[in-house]
């Protein structure tokens, strides 16, 4: 029923439009003028609209900024994030400056130089080498500055000293994250995708850690893997971390907006990102509101639940961290050698 109604309304709309056009064309035929020739009235109307709409556009820019400023991400909670934010502020101010000069010029010229009384002919001005050199060289100089500033920031971030950083692995799969802490030795045990337990994909060997080496000091032994029940990553304020990323199936991307961290997780390779958190969750809750939490999002299209592939991060003090850590079981405590062997047998 509604469909039919909509159809009828649409149809009548088109018929009306056709009739209006026919009438206006007949009228102008009577007045011996061409309906579609642009006349003085059109030029006045449209040039005024340029001024009005242009002004509204610029006003709305400020309106949006002040109205939505509080929604933007809070100041960075990491050391490198602060220098990213500085670069961002610099670049933003620069582009807003250029925006606020050029857009008004465009709308102003469109208004001012309409064809009509007093402005029947244009000024023949085909080129001017001096002007053209100026507006090639000035952007070039400004951009040199932007590039140098940007690259120095980039180098600082990517060359961060990772010695002494706590190594944590983030393992992505459709549609959740698992974390593995490297434990007391700060070394992750090696892993291979064929070792991921096919029997129990969310169990102890969800990440394919190679537990065959029985040496007491083997790197895997003190690794700690988060469980789906307690799926939170704990970090210590002021302590650098080196996140290592792997993926089991498709490309995911680990995005920690509050820390200004993002890195793709690509099957078949390991990627990494180092940073130092500077604010505890408790401190953030104090300024951002009680329901604040650091979150990890997936930021590369990865399937149906891409929009909901999340994990909580908690930044805390060393003491809080130690308390939590002491309650965790290491991998060697969880895995009895027996199950390892059976798993390997089923693999072959």
């Amino acid at each position: 029923m509604t469909n039919i109604l909509i159809f009828i309304v649409g149809f009548l709309g088109i018929v009306t439009l056709v009739q209006i056009l026919r009438v206006s064309e007949l009228m102008s035929a009577v007045h011996k003028q061409d309906v579609n020739e642009v006349n003085e009235k059109d030029n006045i109307f449209n040039s005024k609209m340029m001024l009005i709409v242009g002004a509204l556009f610029l006003i709305s820019f400020f309106w949006q900024y002040f109205e939505w400023k509080h929604l933007l991400l809070p100041e960075a909670s990491s050391e490198h994030g602060v220098i990213i934010d500085e670069l961002m502020t610099f670049t933003m101010l620069l582009i807003i400056f250029v925006f606020l000069i050029t857009q008004p010029l465009l709308f102003w010229y469109s208004y001012k130089y309409r064809k009509g009384k007093g402005n029947e002919t244009a000024y023949y001005f085909a080129h001017n080498n001096k002007l053209e050199i100026i507006w090639t060289v000035v952007p070039a100089i400004v951009l040199t500055g932007v590039i140098l500033y940007g690259l120095s920031t980039w180098n600082k971030i990517t060359n961060a000293d990772v010695k002494g950083a706590t190594v944590i692995e983030l393992y992505a799969k459709q549609f959740n994250w698992t974390a593995r802490y490297s434990g007391a030795d700060n070394k992750l045990g090696s892993a291979h995708y064929k070792l991921v337990s096919p029997i129990n994909p969310s169990g102890t060997n969800a990440l394919g850690v190679d537990t065959r080496d029985n040496d007491v000091n083997a790197a895997w032994k003190d690794d700690i893997i988060t469980t789906p029940v307690d799926n939170v990553v704990h970090l210590v304020k002021g302590q650098p971390v080196l996140l290592k990323f792997r993926s089991q199936d498709v490309i995911h991307s680990a995005f920690l907006p509050h820390f200004r961290v993002q890195m793709n997780c690509v099957p078949g390779m390991t990627t990494q990102f180092a940073f130092t958190p500077t604010k505890t969750t408790a401190e953030m809750k104090a300024t951002e509101g009680e329901d604040f939490d650091y979150v990890l999002l997936c930021n590369k299209i990865c399937g149906a639940s891409h929009y909901n592939m999340q994990m909580k991060f908690i930044v805390e003090t060393q003491e809080e961290y130690d308390t939590w850590m002491s309650s965790q079981k290491t991998l060697s405590e969880k895995v009895s050698t027996q199950t390892v062997i059976t798993e390997l047998v089923t693999q072959k």
Binding site: V38, N43, F45, Y109, S110, Y113, Y123, F125, E132
Partner: peptide, 16 residues
């Protein structure tokens, strides 16, 4: 962009 702005400068714009 600057060349476009310079084209509009002192033009006699017909708003088609």
């Amino acid at each position: 962009v600057f060349n476009y702005l310079a084209t509009l400068w002192k033009a006699s714009i017909r708003f088609t």
